[in-house]
Amino acid sequence: MMKLNPTEIKFIDTYLENSEVNFADIRMEMVDHVASDIESEINAGDSRSFYDIFKDYMLANKATLLKNNKQFIKATDKKLIKLVFKTMLSWQSFGFYLISFMFLYILAINLNQQKLHQWFSVLPLITFLTLGALYFGYFRILKLDRFSAIERMGFVYFMCFHAFHLVSMITENAFEKLDQLYLLLFVNCGMVIMFSILLVTVRLIQEYKRNYKMVA
């Protein structure tokens, strides 16, 4: 049976990347799918060159492939949110919750209520900027392959960040009247969410290392 050579496989990959299929894991699946279909046409008796077959194939199927790309990304977002909530219930998150609460309690002893609230308000922003800098350095400067689940974790964190910030703004006056313990419990929940997002991200990177051998 006829198999496409590495140059032809690379051509398909480059074409899909130039068509804004940016994530390497999604693109790999599409390359396998396209290559398999073209090989089937050749083995069925199509004697044209690879490039002629590929051109006609993409004219007929490109719109469907790009639509599947968008659907895959949406499905990835839902999967990541479920993973984060599941991780929040793990023993690792429970252990982090206890350690984090002790740290916040010690911090609260040394700060008044107003300063404590100000510090808590900027905590998500500091984390967001730190993760953003790590992402920019890891994937942009080093120019490593982009993977859907890893990059979409930024979207999940972005939603959590705004939710936390919104609640903080709405309840600013209420926090001034709240017992300090309730304030610590609320902020600690936010820190556990951030910890769970980080833990899921590390696990995804490890998974991609095993499956794709492309993440440094």
Rank of each mutant, 00 (worst) to 15 (best):
K3E: 12
K3G: 15
K3W: 01
L4W: 11
P6Q: 00
I9A: 02
F11N: 06
D13Y: 09
Y15I: 07
L16Y: 03
S19K: 09
V21M: 06
F23M: 09
A24M: 15
A24C: 12
R27K: 00
R27W: 04
M28A: 12
E29K: 01
M30F: 02
V31N: 04
V31H: 06
H33W: 00
H33Q: 01
N43D: 14
G45I: 10
G45E: 10
D46Q: 03
S47P: 05
R48P: 02
F50P: 05
F54A: 11
K55A: 08
D56I: 07
Y57T: 03
M58P: 09
M58D: 09
A60H: 07
T64V: 06
L65H: 02
L66I: 08
K67G: 06
K67M: 03
K67E: 10
K70D: 12
I73D: 07
L80W: 00
L80H: 05
K82D: 12
K82M: 03
K82W: 01
L83P: 04
V84F: 02
K86N: 09
T87F: 04
S90P: 10
S90G: 09
W91R: 11
S93H: 04
Y97P: 00
Y97L: 01
Y97A: 03
Y105Q: 09
I106R: 11
A108Q: 01
A108M: 04
I109N: 11
N110V: 13
N110M: 12
K115A: 07
V122A: 06
L123C: 08
T127C: 06
G132A: 13
G137Q: 12
G137P: 10
Y138R: 15
R140K: 11
L142A: 13
L144F: 08
F147P: 06
F147M: 11
A149I: 03
M153G: 06
M153R: 07
F155M: 15
Y157G: 01
Y157Q: 00
F161A: 02
H162V: 12
F164L: 01
S168L: 10
M169A: 02
T171G: 00
N173Q: 14
F175E: 03
E176V: 04
K177S: 14
K177H: 11
L178F: 08
L184K: 01
L185R: 09
F186L: 00
V187A: 11
V187M: 05
N188T: 05
G190Q: 08
M191R: 00
F195C: 15
L198N: 11
L198D: 00
V202K: 14
L204K: 07
M214Y: 08
V215Q: 13
